[in-house]
Design a protein around this nucleic acid. Sequence first.
DNA 1: AACTAATGTAAAATATAGTTTACATTTTAT
DNA 2: ATAAAATGTAAACTATATTTTACATTAGTT
Lengths: 66, 66
Amino acid sequence: MKNRIRIERAILNITQADLADRVQVSRQTINAIEAGKYSPTLALGMKIAQQFEKTVNEVFELEEGD
Amino acid sequence: MKNRIRIERAILNITQADLADRVQVSRQTINAIEAGKYSPTLALGMKIAQQFEKTVNEVFELEEGD
DNA sequence: AACTAATGTAAAATATAGTTTACATTTTAT
DNA sequence: ATAAAATGTAAACTATATTTTACATTAGTT
């Protein structure tokens, strides 16, 4: 699962901890998702995209093996 | 988490088992997600939307408490 | 009415997402 | 160069998604 979280965060100028607060998860969860370590739940993926005012498909992309 | 899976399945005229096969999960998983019993992983949500040639946001919608 | 396909559901087990605490490393600001 | 903020990471734990097996109910056929 690829994603543009780092870029979108940079645009909003917010930290991983800020984003974590906004979508109500731990900072480590954002860090892991941003690093592509695992696929979040759909609900979380949607909340993250929502923060960036983007669609899920604009923020996340499936890759081989997902 | 609300979704339009039943409707989109009807348009494609495929069963829950068909969809399950296509996205490589069990039929019960599709049944539970379609019934809104839980939020799938983002990867699965994206695969399901992909089958319908729709975006995730067109197929799934966040609701209070998600 | 009988038969079959499709759907609903449940319990136990496994896999994976997400938390918490804690510390190390890197980046940014002073 | 130093301090502070941000990020990376790890282990143990909890929560939840998904599987498997199995059976009950509903819808559609013949």
